[in-house]
Write a protein that binds this DNA or RNA. Sequence first.
DNA 1: ATAATTTTGTGACGAACTTCACAAGGTGAT
DNA 2: ATCACCTTGTGAAGTTCGTCACAAAATTAT
Lengths: 191, 191
Amino acid sequence: MAPSILRQSLAKIGDLSDEEWALLKGTATPKEFKRGERLLNEGDICRAYFFVEKGYLRTYYNKDGVEINLQFSFEGDFTTNFKSLKNEKPSHFIIEAGEKSRVWIFDREKMKPLYFEKEAIGLLLRRLAMQLLLSSEEYSNLYKISTPTQRYEYIERHKPHLLQRLSLSQLSSYLGVTRETLSRIRSASAR
Amino acid sequence: MAPSILRQSLAKIGDLSDEEWALLKGTATPKEFKRGERLLNEGDICRAYFFVEKGYLRTYYNKDGVEINLQFSFEGDFTTNFKSLKNEKPSHFIIEAGEKSRVWIFDREKMKPLYFEKEAIGLLLRRLAMQLLLSSEEYSNLYKISTPTQRYEYIERHKPHLLQRLSLSQLSSYLGVTRETLSRIRSASAR
DNA sequence: ATAATTTTGTGACGAACTTCACAAGGTGAT
DNA sequence: ATCACCTTGTGAAGTTCGTCACAAAATTAT
């Protein structure tokens, strides 16, 4: 049988024996979400890692009624809200399905014993956490260091799938500009 | 004998026995840096965590000849460049002393065996990494979500020591504005 | 297919920030 | 105390981006 996209994605992070893989998988539940359905609500405590098998997830913040996108997670990606997960504090962010999506929900409480009992699982989870945090740091530096136009060019070069899968409006708040400005950046760069 | 500021700071992150503490301390070397001396140079691979005993460190990026501050680390703080440390890739950032400083340099290679042999040390180091990355995430969200004036107010409320220890020019690039703009924000907020 | 709804493009205008220039105020060295 | 150097304050002009308004295009529902 062909390995699942889930197992493939995990294999990129660390090696697990068949037994360990079965144990880890046992902590997760697959679930379907319709476009707009929420995996994490503002004010709730985040208790899981999410793995996207199909579709995509959108992490956003509600600023005076305007949604500001902080992250998009596509097929093969993991995501969560670390600050809420680690500190067991209410989340300021919302995670919802950007389109009809199939997601594996890794329950933190179920994973906890494995974390200590199985060295390889603990190592893999730590690496996963590190990867997620590092990519968030990278995004934050992009944000700080460059102008809106440069940010758009960065996306064109390094994350072109974002341009294909997201509407201009969704992308604009991720880049920190209005949709009008992004529209103008795009029409200027077409020349 | 009174516990050192180093041991006090570590105690806030996790518990270590006297033996573990001695082992961990053995991986570190204290060093003095004059104002402007560099702990990490652009293009070099970061191989250590830095603990500030006295003075402060400045992490910045050189953008077309203009320095952009990304982080300040004061007495009792740890810092490093994670991306470079973890991936063993050349650093894009520079870490240097903002004033005459005394720093403990925790060598990554020396720490590595302890990480696996001593459970408590591994746990503490993971927590430390998590804290550093979460604070960087928090800063990035501040940056994204608010206007320059709001960012300044955030600093006033949550990190007033920055206002006392840093020059206006240093702070301005950290807030993502020119020094002129920060000067104007400040004179407006004085009323 | 057609209508309704949502998304995108574009112009006009204003606000916020940058750039440039220079004066004033501090700080350190001799 | 004086000079040199560095930092801060402030005005004027220019840019960029946001806001508002509306038309065009695309998508979805019926």
